[in-house]
Design a protein around this nucleic acid. Sequence first.
DNA 1: TCTTGACCTTCCCAGAATGGTAAAGCCCAC
DNA 2: GTGGGCTTTACCATTCTGGGAAGGTCAAGA
Lengths: 138, 138
Amino acid sequence: MAQGMNIGEAAKASGLSPKMIRWYEEQGLIPRPPRSEGGYRVYGPKDIERLRFIRRARDLGFGVRQIGQLLALWQDRGRASADVKRLALEHAAALEARIEALRGILAAIRHLAEHCHGDARPDCPILEHLAHDQEEHP
Amino acid sequence: MAQGMNIGEAAKASGLSPKMIRWYEEQGLIPRPPRSEGGYRVYGPKDIERLRFIRRARDLGFGVRQIGQLLALWQDRGRASADVKRLALEHAAALEARIEALRGILAAIRHLAEHCHGDARPDCPILEHLAHDQEEHP
DNA sequence: TCTTGACCTTCCCAGAATGGTAAAGCCCAC
DNA sequence: GTGGGCTTTACCATTCTGGGAAGGTCAAGA
């Protein structure tokens, strides 16, 4: 075995869904595999390796474009590790920015919720915040 | 003024883009406004209030469905603040989950990047992590 | 009054990644 | 040979936002 897996087996072996495998193929992350007589995609060990690489990169939150760059670097024997590191640090910076934005929002929500008594009465600082412009006044 | 603003003015007054205003209308968050003779949407003060409410809710990361619920509660004189609070806390929990997931990923990336010397040499623990399955072996 | 430029209208397309469905064809074990 | 499971393509939906095209409207200035 390991010689010629169908997409379902490739999916199990890589941790991706068949759908995603086809989609990555469409996006150009993986070469179009040969087909069986019946038209089925046939994957070899190299393909499985590549799919697993993709899954791990995806699990680290890399986008399709970045995964493509990582794959290119991976295949490039003469790569500089600095290039890989730069990609990773850019991704880290983007993640951090998203996290910070979300944390700001979370803090605001929590703050509002804390001051809402949360009973049967209708008055609520959350709705008041949304309704009245306390924000503008620089 | 404040009587009959075009969509562009409504956008400036609310902080939303004209595109988004039309889209919120399509999503049912705001009633379809009356039109001028020429077919232009005409917004009154009440509409602007509602648009601002929507913008603030959006800025707090609420999704369209939740904004709809918040608007309904806002208009409901007999609402219980507990309902608003529940919505806010659900949203906070979802935010927290997303933040935690991102933080896990960020830590992993940072850890890998720290161990990558990042120079002209090709060997790189980041690519090695992506290439070799250290993870499977339960 | 005519022109011009800014604004508005609708409709289509795109992204990013995933899931679902449907109609049809293939493959294998019994 | 037949049934059930797998695969194929193709289309739709999500969530929110932006871009653009093709055409209509409006107001101000010449």
